[in-house]
Amino acid sequence: MASISSAWALYAKLVLSTASTHSIATETGRWNNHILKHFDPDCEIESITSMNLLEFRSSLIGKKLSPQSISHCLSLFRRVLQRAKQWKLISGELPSFDMPRFDNKRIRFLTKEEANELLLCVSLKSSLWHDICVLALHTGLRSGELFKLRPCHFDSQNSALHVLDTKSNSNRTVPLNKQALEVLSRNISRKELIFTEHGKQILYAGRTFRQAVEICRLNSHTQDRRQRVVFHTLRHTFASWLVQSGIPLAVVGQLLGHKSMQMTMRYAHLAPAQGVSAVKALEQFTNSVNLE
């Protein structure tokens, strides 16, 4: 009988080891701090029931974890057990996972005034983070995509940036405007990565960005995490500004690297006039008839 610890050891070696350093640390933390704190390391996989999983979920709720964090813990546990089944470590059926349902999408984006104030505040603290924020605002890249950029990804001849090994596993090319080109031109060097801090790879947006947000009081009006300004808000701002400028949602989704149009539709409410223009375009195809 396979234990959850033996299943995790194989999962960490064969699957998780190929992930980023940040992902390895995050997933290992979830396993050690939550899953192993509830289940005994020698717990046999085939002894775990759906009731046990509901009890585990309740314990996570009791820790006051966010719905997304609870979902991440359950999803990790499910993946480990599914791999154990795939590798024939167990023969029985796996218990069912009752995953929490929630709408956790961040919807906050910056106004032009807020963005300029934030960039000014960041620039006073760090020219590096000012440039990172400007590039995020003008390309819509995820933080992980920004921090993995290499000089070879910058196509100066065609004013484009090649984004590889993305979260959606789909490479894309993002055109660059004047502001983005200026940032890349002054940060390109012989370094292996375009952006580094203290000679090391940046893994996530840290203290400098958070302090600037706090100084600008961008989160002073809300405790709802969906409304709070975080680094990812720059990506939402990029998309929101494009939609408000009349750029079709399909183009916005392509620039963001979305897997499906459904992901881009969260921005549809920002361009109600596009629907009006669309139906007005049909007027040319039929003749009006005066029924009086």
Rank of each mutant, 00 (worst) to 15 (best):
A2F: 13
S6A: 15
S6M: 14
W8K: 03
A9V: 08
A9E: 15
A9H: 12
Y11N: 03
A12Q: 14
L14A: 11
T18S: 14
T21P: 05
T28P: 11
T28V: 09
R30Q: 07
N32I: 07
N33D: 11
H34K: 06
I35Y: 01
P41K: 01
P41R: 00
P41G: 00
I45N: 00
I48D: 02
L53F: 05
L53M: 02
L60T: 05
I61E: 12
G62T: 05
K63E: 14
I70C: 03
S71C: 12
C73N: 14
C73I: 01
L74K: 00
L74G: 05
L74D: 05
S75N: 12
L76T: 01
L76V: 03
V80S: 11
Q82S: 13
Q82L: 14
K85L: 11
W87D: 15
W87A: 14
G92K: 14
E93A: 14
L94R: 04
P95C: 07
P95S: 08
M99Y: 07
R101I: 11
N104A: 15
N104P: 01
T111W: 11
T111D: 09
E114G: 04
A115Y: 02
A115C: 03
L118F: 07
L119Q: 03
L124V: 03
S126L: 02
L128R: 07
L128Y: 02
L128Q: 00
V134K: 03
L135F: 06
A136N: 04
R142V: 00
R142L: 00
G144C: 08
L146P: 02
L149D: 04
R150P: 05
R150H: 11
H153K: 10
F154W: 15
K167T: 07
N169E: 10
E182G: 01
S185A: 15
R190Y: 01
K191T: 08
E192D: 06
E192W: 00
L193Q: 01
I194D: 13
T196K: 06
E197L: 08
I202D: 08
I202S: 06
T208P: 07
R217C: 11
N219C: 03
S220C: 04
H221R: 12
Q227R: 13
V229Q: 02
V230D: 08
V230T: 13
L234V: 05
H236N: 15
T237I: 03
A239T: 02
V243L: 12
V243T: 14
Q244K: 15
I247L: 08
P248M: 09
A250I: 11
V252G: 03
Q254P: 01
Q254E: 13
Q254A: 10
L255G: 12
L256R: 10
H258A: 04
T264G: 11
R266Q: 10
A268G: 07
H269L: 05
A271C: 10
A273F: 14
A273L: 13
A273P: 00
A281C: 10
L282D: 07
L282I: 10
L282Q: 05
F285P: 08
T286R: 09
T286D: 13
T286Y: 15
S288T: 14
S288D: 13
L291W: 14
E292R: 09
